[in-house]
């Protein structure tokens, strides 16, 4: 097994491992639930415990499938997708970070400023090619304004308006 095919297999193990940890934490918490009155076997912790056990079984099948399936060879992987077409996790991570910052700043900066900056960042991450700075700024302003009209004016939603920065 080449190093890259081993890495591919390792990559597909990360999510089931994460789910395994989550399930274990969930099960441990389920076992600590104290019912307010006795319902017999099927109390507040019954379904969570059952769900955890079924989850372990299903994860077992997934682990078995991953370990049994041969990882794609380097050549096969290359044939399937050109370098240009290969998905890049970096763009998704950048969007997650931008979104987290947007949410954190939403009330403080207010809808107009935070949304404008967020949209500008998204246009950048989505590679809006062949477009100058002025156009990107214009697109960001238009999108911000359109959804302000939709939410605040048509659907009467109270959106934060820079009050977080005012004394």
């Amino acid at each position: 097994m080449s190093s890259s095919s081993f890495a591919a297999k390792k990559g597909s193990l990360v999510l089931p491992l994460f789910l395994l940890i989550i399930t274990t934490v969930y099960l441990a918490t389920a076992l600590q639930i104290t019912p307010q009155f006795d319902e017999g076997l099927v109390g507040p912790s019954f379904v969570p415990v059952l769900a955890s056990i079924l989850m372990y079984v299903a994860l077992g099948f997934v682990f078995r499938d991953i370990l049994r399936t041969p990882a794609p060879t380097d050549d096969a992987a290359d044939n399937e997708a050109t370098a240009e077409d290969k998905p890049s996790l970096a763009a998704a991570i950048k969007i997650v970070l931008a979104t987290a910052i947007y949410i954190a700043a939403f009330k403080t900066l207010g809808y107009p400023l935070s949304t404008f900056l967020y949209v500008y960042a998204l246009l950048f991450f989505f590679k809006l090619e062949n477009t100058g700075q002025i156009r990107r700024v214009a697109y960001s302003a238009i999108i911000t304004a359109v959804f302000y009209v939709l939410f605040a004016m048509i659907f009467q939603v109270r959106l934060p308006m820079l009050e977080g920065l005012l004394p």
Binding site: I103, T115, Y139, I143, F151, F155, L159
Partner: peptide, 22 residues
């Protein structure tokens, strides 16, 4: 880029609408 930027704004501001909470 334009399409998904619009979707992102609708999705996130839409989530805020229900409880006015980030």
């Amino acid at each position: 880029a334009l399409l998904y930027s619009c979707i992102a704004v609708v999705a996130l501001v839409g989530s805020y609408v229900a409880t006015y909470s980030p």
